[in-house]
Deep mutational scan, measured.
Amino acid sequence: MPGGGPEMDDYMETLKDEEDALWENVECNRHMLSRYINPAKLTPYLRQCKVIDEQDEDEVLNAPMLPSKINRAGRLLDILHTKGQRGYVVFLESLEFYYPELYKLVTGKEPTRRFSTIVVEEGHEGLTHFLMNEVIKLQQQMKAKDLQRCELLARLRQLEDEKKQMTLTRVELLTFQERYYKMKEERDSYNDELVKVKDDNYNLAMRYAQLSEEKNMAVMRSRDLQLEIDQLKHRLNKMEEECKLERNQSLKLKNDIENRPKKEQVLELERENEMLKTKNQELQSIIQAGKRSLPDSDKAILDILEHDRKEALEDRQELVNRIYNLQEEARQAEELRDKYLEEKEDLELKCSTLGKDCEMYKHRMNTVMLQLEEVERERDQAFHSRDEAQTQYSQCLIEKDKYRKQIRELEEKNDEMRIEMVRREACIVNLESKLRRLSKDSNNLDQSLPRNLPVTIISQDFGDASPRTNGQEADDSSTSEESPEDSKYFLPYHPPQRRMNLKGIQLQRAKS
């Protein structure tokens, strides 16, 4: 015994090295194993092979420090690593049964499904019991997946119906949107047309105001020219009257000059006056001389005659003075006559000038009245044309509004008919989907599995289990394997941990 101590140590070291070499393959693929292994699927088989106990299973599945599946799978690998070579062998058998691809990844061999460990530990009855539990578990999982698949199909059909409904609603909204954009385009076109009409109206108003201003300026210029013409006519008439007055005065002077006595007659009258003065002096001298030589009687007679002569001279002087006064009065009367005649001529000139001015103003008033009548006639014609244009424009607008209203009513009726057609199509689609759903539900009910399987069917299934373990590994792997896509769409199922009653199965096998 003492001599065998070193050999035992060498043997233990060799086993430990082999164990480390075995687990080295697992550690190399630890990331892939932790990512894809579900500990809840492996722990029943590991407990059946007595590699882990209930406490280890509870620690792996329910520990609060292991929230994710990767953490739980890593903890399970750590626990199996502590179990040595047996933990490695049982772990590979569980991978061979549940995850053939991972088994091939770790060992590089094809899975054979021999279950040597569980046969050694529990015997064939334990293997049968384990396989029966796994089959029931798989059936329950398949039923749950079928239910989930039916629910998802129903949800899918519902979503398809909602999608069709949303599509129809979208078509309806597109119809309304198209109608909205069309009405918006019509409104924009009408606004552009309105702005264009306003611009045209403004341009016409500006043109009309400009023409009116030009016409008023032309009328004012015409009036100024007419006033200048009238003033020139007035000056012409005044000059004609002055010329006529000057002509009359010149004719009067000419007549006075023609009626003036001649120079010879004046000289002859002056000679006669001198001769008479000479004779008068001679007679006076004779009379003076006679007075001195005459007697007293003759002197008395001469005195009487002288007195008579003096009286006659006085009378004559009075007559001469009277004649002079009369001549002066006649001259003054002639001057007054000439003055009055001049005033008369001036008044006649003024009267004729005023008459011509009156005629001029009368003509001017007639011209202004004619212009006013023409302006009123043009204004009435413009008003009439404007009223006709406004009436025609309003009539066109009324007809346009009428046609637009008819078009809008027809478009609304068309839209309502399209919407009604879309709604009826939606109703038809809904009815078809309901009919299809009812038909599929009836087919699913016919094809669904019963909840409680008979014992004979279970025994028959387990009677055929042994050949399947040898020759149909691919079928078992397809039913027991969970793909990543299934984990996305289906909830994980945790079967209840219970042991099955095998009395009925044993009785059935005894009868057979």
Rank of each mutant, 00 (worst) to 15 (best):
G4F: 10
G4L: 13
G5C: 14
G5D: 13
G5Q: 13
G5H: 15
P6V: 13
P6M: 10
M8A: 12
M8N: 14
D9M: 13
D9S: 10
D9Q: 13
D10F: 13
D10C: 11
Y11T: 13
Y11E: 12
M12G: 10
M12S: 10
M12D: 09
E13S: 10
E13D: 14
E13R: 11
E13W: 13
T14I: 09
T14F: 10
L15Y: 14
L15A: 12
L15K: 12
L15F: 12
L15P: 11
K16P: 13
K16M: 12
K16L: 11
K16E: 11
K16A: 11
D17N: 12
D17A: 14
D17R: 11
E18D: 13
E18L: 11
E18V: 12
E19M: 12
E19C: 10
D20K: 09
D20H: 11
A21T: 10
A21I: 09
A21H: 09
A21C: 08
L22C: 10
L22W: 07
W23Q: 08
E24G: 08
N25M: 08
N25C: 10
N25D: 10
E27M: 03
E27N: 13
E27V: 06
C28H: 08
C28Q: 09
C28N: 13
C28E: 10
N29Y: 02
N29E: 02
N29P: 00
R30G: 02
R30Q: 03
H31I: 06
H31A: 13
M32V: 13
M32T: 09
M32F: 10
L33E: 00
L33T: 01
L33M: 09
S34P: 01
S34N: 02
S34T: 14
Y36M: 14
I37A: 01
I37N: 01
I37R: 00
N38A: 07
N38P: 01
P39Y: 02
A40C: 07
A40Y: 12
L42W: 00
T43H: 02
P44Q: 08
P44H: 03
Y45E: 01
Y45D: 03
L46P: 02
L46V: 02
R47S: 02
Q48E: 12
Q48F: 02
C49G: 14
C49V: 07
C49F: 15
K50E: 08
V51F: 01
V51W: 01
I52D: 03
I52M: 13
D53Q: 04
D53R: 05
D53M: 03
E54G: 04
E54N: 05
Q55G: 07
Q55Y: 09
Q55V: 12
Q55K: 03
D56A: 04
D56G: 03
E57A: 02
E57W: 03
E57V: 03
D58L: 05
D58I: 02
E59G: 00
E59V: 02
E59D: 01
E59P: 00
E59Q: 00
V60A: 00
V60S: 04
N62Q: 09
N62I: 08
M65L: 09
M65K: 05
L66T: 00
L66Q: 00
P67I: 10
P67V: 07
P67H: 09
S68L: 13
K69G: 00
K69W: 00
K69E: 00
K69C: 02
K69Y: 02
I70M: 13
I70E: 02
R72G: 01
G74V: 06
R75T: 02
R75D: 02
R75P: 01
L76M: 09
L77S: 02
L77F: 07
L77I: 12
L77P: 02
L80P: 03
L80I: 06
H81M: 06
H81G: 07
H81F: 05
T82F: 06
T82Q: 06
K83D: 04
K83N: 04
K83H: 06
G84Y: 01
Q85H: 14
R86Y: 01
R86L: 07
G87W: 04
Y88S: 06
Y88H: 14
Y88W: 08
Y88G: 08
V89M: 14
V89Y: 08
V89L: 09
V89G: 09
V89D: 15
V89K: 07
L92I: 15
E93M: 09
L95H: 14
L95G: 03
E96Q: 03
E96K: 00
E96R: 08
E96V: 07
Y98Q: 09
Y98H: 11
Y98V: 08
Y99T: 10
P100S: 07
P100Q: 07
E101A: 14
L102T: 04
Y103A: 08
Y103P: 01
K104I: 10
K104N: 05
K104A: 08
L105M: 01
L105Q: 03
V106T: 02
T107S: 06
T107F: 00
K109T: 06
K109A: 03
E110M: 13
E110Q: 14
P111I: 06
P111R: 07
P111T: 14
P111H: 07
P111V: 10
P111F: 04
P111S: 15
T112P: 09
T112I: 15
F115G: 12
F115Y: 15
F115P: 15
S116N: 09
T117E: 15
I118Q: 10
I118T: 15
I118G: 06
I118K: 12
V119C: 07
V119I: 11
V119S: 15
V120A: 05
E121M: 05
E122W: 07
E122F: 04
H124S: 15
E125C: 10
E125Y: 13
E125H: 12
E125A: 11
E125M: 13
E125I: 10
E125L: 14
G126P: 13
G126F: 10
L127N: 08
L127E: 04
L127M: 15
L127A: 09
L127Y: 13
T128K: 02
T128D: 13
T128V: 09
T128Q: 08
H129R: 11
L131N: 00
L131I: 09
N133D: 06
N133E: 10
N133S: 08
E134V: 15
V135W: 04
V135R: 14
I136V: 13
K137P: 06
K137H: 07
K137A: 08
L138N: 12
L138F: 06
L138T: 10
Q139W: 10
Q139V: 14
Q140L: 13
Q140T: 09
Q140P: 08
Q140N: 12
Q141N: 12
Q141D: 08
Q141R: 09
M142P: 08
M142V: 08
M142S: 11
M142G: 13
M142I: 15
M142A: 11
K143F: 08
K143I: 10
K143L: 09
K143D: 08
A144D: 10
A144E: 11
A144I: 11
K145S: 11
K145E: 06
K145I: 10
K145P: 08
K145W: 10
D146I: 09
